[in-house]
Design a protein around this nucleic acid. Sequence first.
DNA 1: TAAATTTGCTTAGAGGCATTAAGGAAAAAT
DNA 2: ATTTTTCCTTAATGCCTCTAAGCAAATTTA
Lengths: 247, 247
Amino acid sequence: MTAQGVSRRERVRQATLAEIRAAARRLLIEQGSQAVTINAVAREMGMSGPALYHYFAGHDELVGAVTADFFRELTEAMETARDACPPGEHGARLLAACRAMRSWSVSHRAEFGWVFASPITAERRPDSPRELAGRDFEQIFLEEIAELWKSRRFPVPAPEELPASIREQLRAYADSTGVGLPVEAIHVFMSCWIRLYGLLCMEVLNQLDFVYSDMEPVFEECLREIAPKLGLDYETETTAKAVPGRS
Amino acid sequence: MTAQGVSRRERVRQATLAEIRAAARRLLIEQGSQAVTINAVAREMGMSGPALYHYFAGHDELVGAVTADFFRELTEAMETARDACPPGEHGARLLAACRAMRSWSVSHRAEFGWVFASPITAERRPDSPRELAGRDFEQIFLEEIAELWKSRRFPVPAPEELPASIREQLRAYADSTGVGLPVEAIHVFMSCWIRLYGLLCMEVLNQLDFVYSDMEPVFEECLREIAPKLGLDYETETTAKAVPGRS
DNA sequence: TAAATTTGCTTAGAGGCATTAAGGAAAAAT
DNA sequence: ATTTTTCCTTAATGCCTCTAAGCAAATTTA
């Protein structure tokens, strides 16, 4: 232990871990997800393949770690955009987070695509870095919606309008979140979430390029449609446009 | 040439091709997409790996052929459901096709998942079997919407409500379809399509299982919301439920 | 019918991948 | 100064894709 509380060894190890993830990301961006192999990553940084097993248990774990990085980076971008808005303006904060989500996605297509259409369907252990990072991501929306609900309730369907089967499923989820939103509010949230996230999903998976080459106005229209459901005023983006990324 | 106009050789070849695709599909269903390798497929049917190269140029082409099969099967299921409704009732026909789409997807999860989050991002040659089959699929909706539009117009946004950037993109697509729908109608169609298909996309990619375990009522609610946009009455499903599939 | 050709398959082999095993060298702890 | 830990190496197994060379049967041609 040094004065920093971390041994030199540990520091070197962390640096190597970071280098591995950076190399994996570089390969993903430059050559696609298929190119992210243990051997290729090792080669990229002048190591032998098996050496990587000292840092990751296997290919899946490496993929999971990199995916978690992306999730965290996306989450951070959204938090930054959100926090650029005044604390009380939940509507503006929500819209900013949504736009930041797409902005990051578009400037990091390879990364975003990987997070979704992940080659890894396995893992899914609820305590894996990937799942934890995913939860943080989800939390951004959940928290802001909860604040919004507390400060100025948005319209919700009448209890009898909500099919029982949906209500039961939402009940379990609402309880697990701990933000104390009523089932009807969660339902509205999920409706919006499905539309926004689904659109992004389709964009990234190139399911819409037979019609649209520029999805940005389509996304904005989606926001415009969603906003009133949450009792928000749709506001055109005022801040700077998406930062041009490398992918 | 025989009386049938097809040589025995050709018949045997077609039978082998069918067997290969069936074996590939079996592997996909039973062991996941990763198990669909040239070698494994060949082994599955008692052949050596390289023999398959007499039937498919490589792994990608095999994947593309199987994917096209799935697309065609899905399309057929939708057409059958649609044609079980009277020719004039475009609303009922459309709903039937939508439900058949989900019904097939749910009872053929592995296949549907493969069509979307296809490991093959390459290919994409516009004349590949996969793309052609995809176009037939798209055509089902397009045709029915066109009929609907002809028989009983649905409400469309006023020209000035449609952002110019979206309008231009839709213009190009509308011209390419040849069904003669005005841009505004195509826009409504796409809005509905994005919501429905996006929902299915998310379901298959397990992006919603943190909340929903049974998506069927969520899908129905989506239909209920979409129906009035096309000037349709939402009707509860009357025919038999989804046929239990093997996957 | 006999020869030539085409087709369908085989094995061999190159090169890449994930992963395990065994061992050497350097750094850290004792 | 010695032991232990850590990091990395090469070797090896067994999978994969795909090419090459060649055999045998079916088909076509003469």
